[in-house]
Design a protein around this nucleic acid. Structure first.
Lengths: 159, 159
DNA sequence: GTCGATGCAAAGAATTTGCAGGACC
DNA sequence: GGTCCTGCAAATTCTTTGCATCGAC
């Protein structure tokens, strides 16, 4: 339960991609190669991505997609709760696949030195948040806790 | 412990303002009216403010301060750990006074409907985070948990 | 054939930076 | 009087939007 506790079991990419495409279709959207490429990339990445990173990676793979299309697709996915948007404090927002019913729900640690984003799950934290929400008479929705700190590697190197 | 649990005791503004000014001075910075106005406003506000809000409020009070100066002052304060920067998901960053030694440490709830930001404290959450950090062999620094949801008022109005 | 989707480029918004002049010590 | 600070405006970066064109259904 030490250094590898941060490794959340990798989400079933294929399942999410199929699900997301079906949802978009069901919502009355047409299918298209650029959009499919974006959805596919998001589903297969294990780390959170920025819009720029998505566009860049697709270009590298030869399927150049306009940055506007990337943003429009992300907005669509976010509205359908198919992706989770993260604000980890950098200039740009990051996105990751979201599963229905809160499956694979997790949070993130951000290393302030190297910028690495590490997912984690924790039942105690979840419970604390739930009790908290009751007490505050606040309805907490799809919360995402972003903790900032220094990852093991960076802590070792520089205090 | 119900609807008013979100009211954290208001921070001692005067004390923070004096402390921040002393720290800046000690760090070798000169004093100036614009910078003092920014520090003073941050210290007296009970809610988190954006750079734009700070500039706007100061202009309203007749002490127009250039937006660049506001940003430069905020950066200075942030580097000295005199303010805490918050990314609550909007377009712009928000800032609030920070006290030495983690005094008045708290977190925030953000209402996704009305945008209101509400501070809260919670020992259980704090404990869960501390244990978590150990287990992950991650060194968690000045963490700030931002929970998003729907505040009591908005929940009552619209489901 | 209609209407949504795309890509480019322009528009916007937030933040940073260059620079000339002014203020502090 | 030298150096730091300020304000303006230009530059950057991220994101959104207008519009003509293309493609799915």
């Amino acid at each position: 339960m030490q250094a590898k506790a941060h490794k959340v079991d990798s989400p079933p990419a294929e399942r999410w991609v199929a699900f997301a495409e079906a949802e978009l279709r069901a919502a009355g959207h047409r299918s298209s190669a650029p959009r499919a490429a974006v959805v596919d990339l998001i589903g297969r990445q294990d780390c959170v991505l920025t819009a720029h990173e998505i566009a860049e990676e697709l270009r590298r793979r030869g399927h150049g997609v306009g940055i506007a299309t990337v943003y429009r697709t992300l907005e669509l996915l976010e509205r359908g709760k198919l992706v989770q948007r993260l604000d980890v404090g950098g200039a740009s927002a990051r996105y990751e696949p979201a599963f229905p019913g809160g499956e694979h729900h997790h949070h993130h640690l951000v290393c302030e030195r190297c910028g690495r984003v590490t997912p984690f799950e924790d039942d105690d934290l979840e419970r604390a948040i739930a009790e908290l929400a009751d007490r505050l008479s606040y309805r907490v929705g799809e919360h995402d806790v972003v903790l900032k700190g220094s990852c093991p590697r960076c802590s070792r190197v520089a205090g």
